[in-house]
Design a binder for these strands. Structure first.
Lengths: 235, 235
DNA sequence: ACCCGACGGAACGGGTCCGTTTCAACGCTG
DNA sequence: CAGCGTTGAAACGGACCCGTTCCGTCGGGT
C-alpha cells in the first residue's frame, strides 16, 4: 500500500545525500527533508540508516550490464572501460562509490553488499571477458585473473575516482590497447612464484643491477600514526 | 608553551578516529576523549575540525621518501610499489587514505592538502622515476606521463585499498616487471590523438572487428539516482 | 458514500556534539 | 618561592539527530 512515488523520491534523496555528505553524515531526517516527505514515511519502509542505504545501493548495479561481445580482447576491453567511464563520469556515482568503498572497510555489511552489487557485475564481467579471450586463444589459460582484474580496472578507477583529472580524447581506446597488450605478455602467466631464475626482461638497454627483492631503504615510512599510541598521556 | 606530548597524543587520536569513524563522523570531543585530554587542549591548538585534520594529515607524508636510485626502470618501479605497499599495508593508512580521498571530492581544502601532501611526494616520485628512465633511454621522451602514473599506481591502489585481497608472494616484483614492460610499449608514446590510422596492434590472433569507438550499447546504465530528481513529491 | 491506510507535521525524551566560559590544580620558569 | 600559563573538568545555550507516538488529512477501493 506504500506509495511508489514516495519510495523512489526517498531513494533519489539517499543518493544525493550520500554524494553530498557521505555515509557517515547521512541522517534519516536529512533524507526525509530532501525528499520532501515525513520522517514517518522513511521509517515505515526501512528501520535503520544501514538498511536504507544497503537497499538503495544494492539495486543500483542490479541493472545488468549488456556485456560486450566483440570478437577481440582489445575491443571487449574498450567497451568495458567505456561502461566504467560512463558510470563513474556522473557526479553522483563518482562521489558515492569511493565513499561507500571507504566505508566498506569499516562496515562488513556494506562491504558484502557492495561485493554482491558491484563486483558480481564487474568481477564477473571481467572474468567473462578474460574467459572469452582465453577461449579465442588470445590469452594463456594460466593467466593470473586476479592480477588481470587489477590491471584492467585499477588505472581507470584511479583516474576517474581518485586523480579526477580530465580524460583526454582517445584515452580509453588507448588504455584498452595498452591493457590488452599487457595481458598478452608472457609475464601474466605464472600465477605466483618462479620470478627468481633469470628474469626474462623484454628489451632493457641497461642490464639492470642486482634486484635485492628487499630493498626497502630502512626508515622509509615510520608507519603513520603509531608512534605515540596513547601512552604519554598525563591523565 | 603548549605541551608537546599532549599535542602528539591528539595527533595520534585523530588518526585513530579517522580510521574508525572517518572524517564525516570525526568529532573534536571524540578526539579529546580518545587522547585522554580535555576539549580545551584541542581548541587551544586548532580552531576547527578541518584545521585539525588538515594539519595532521599534511605532516604525514612530509617524511620524504628516500626515492629509488637503481639503475633500471623495472627495479625503480619495484621499490616504488614496495613503498606504496608498505604504507597502505598498515590498518590505519589503508582506512584513512581512501576515506580522505573520498572526502576530498567534497571538500576542496582536503583535496588541496592531499594534493600537496601525497601527490607532491608521489606524483613527483613517479615523474622522477619516469624522467630517469627517459634519460637512460628506457622510455620514449614523448611518453604520456599522466597515463603512465595511472598505470603505475592504479592497479596496486585498487588491490590494496579497494579490492583488499591478499597479495600473494612475488606479486609486487611481477607487477613491476609487467608495468615496466607496458611503459616501454610503443603504445605509450602518442600523448593524445593519432589512434585512427591503422591501429598497430601487437600480435592479435584474430584480426579484430571494426572498432566503432562509440559502441555504448544504449541503455547501458540509466545514470544512477537521477530518474526522479525530486519531482514526483506530493507535498 | 464510506472506511482504511498511508501521508505530513509536530512533538516526545534522550543522546551527541558544537564552541565558549569558568574554575581549581599543577608544573615550570624565573 | 612566587607567579604565570597550560591543564582537565564541568557547565553553558544551541543545534542536530534519534526512534517513537499522536493526530488531522487525504485518497483509493468497495
Amino acid at each position: 500500500m506504500l506509495r511508489g512515488d514516495i519510495t523512489s523520491a526517498i531513494r533519489a534523496a539517499v543518493m544525493q545525500e550520500l554524494a553530498e555528505v557521505g555515509y557517515g553524515r547521512l541522517s534519516i531526517e536529512g533524507v526525509a527533508r530532501r525528499a520532501g516527505v515525513g520522517k514517518t514515511a522513511v521509517y515505515r519502509r526501512w528501520n535503520s540508516k544501514l538498511a536504507l542505504v544497503l537497499d538503495v545501493v544494492s539495486d543500483l548495479a542490479v541493472r545488468k550490464m549488456p556485456l560486450p561481445d566483440t570478437g577481440s580482447l582489445r575491443d571487449d576491453l574498450e567497451i568495458l572501460l567505456q561502461i566504467i567511464n560512463q558510470v563513474l563520469k556522473h557526479r553522483l556515482a563518482s562521489q558515492v562509490v569511493p565513499d561507500l568503498l571507504a566505508e566498506a572497510a569499516r562496515n562488513p555489511q556494506i562491504a558484502e553488499t557492495l561485493q554482491q552489487a558491484l563486483r558480481a557485475n564487474q568481477r564477473n564481467v571481467a572474468d567473462l571477458l578474460l574467459g572469452r579471450a582465453v577461449a579465442r586463444g588470445e590469452l594463456s589459460p594460466q593467466i593470473d585473473t586476479e592480477a588481470a582484474v587489477d590491471l584492467i580496472i585499477g588505472p581507470l578507477y584511479w583516474r576517474l575516482a581518485i586523480s579526477r583529472t580530465r580524460i583526454p580524447q582517445g584515452y580509453l581506446p588507448r588504455l584498452a590497447a595498452i591493457t590488452a597488450a599487457t595481458l598478452q605478455s608472457e609475464l601474466m602467466s605464472p600465477p605466483a612464484v618462479a620470478p627468481r631464475p633469470a628474469a626474462p626482461r623484454p628489451a632493457g638497454p641497461a642490464p639492470a643491477a642486482p634486484r635485492p627483492t628487499e630493498p626497502a631503504p630502512a626508515a622509509v615510512v615510520p608507519p603513520v600514526g603509531t608512534p605515540p599510541p596513547g601512552a604519554p598521556v598525563t591523565a
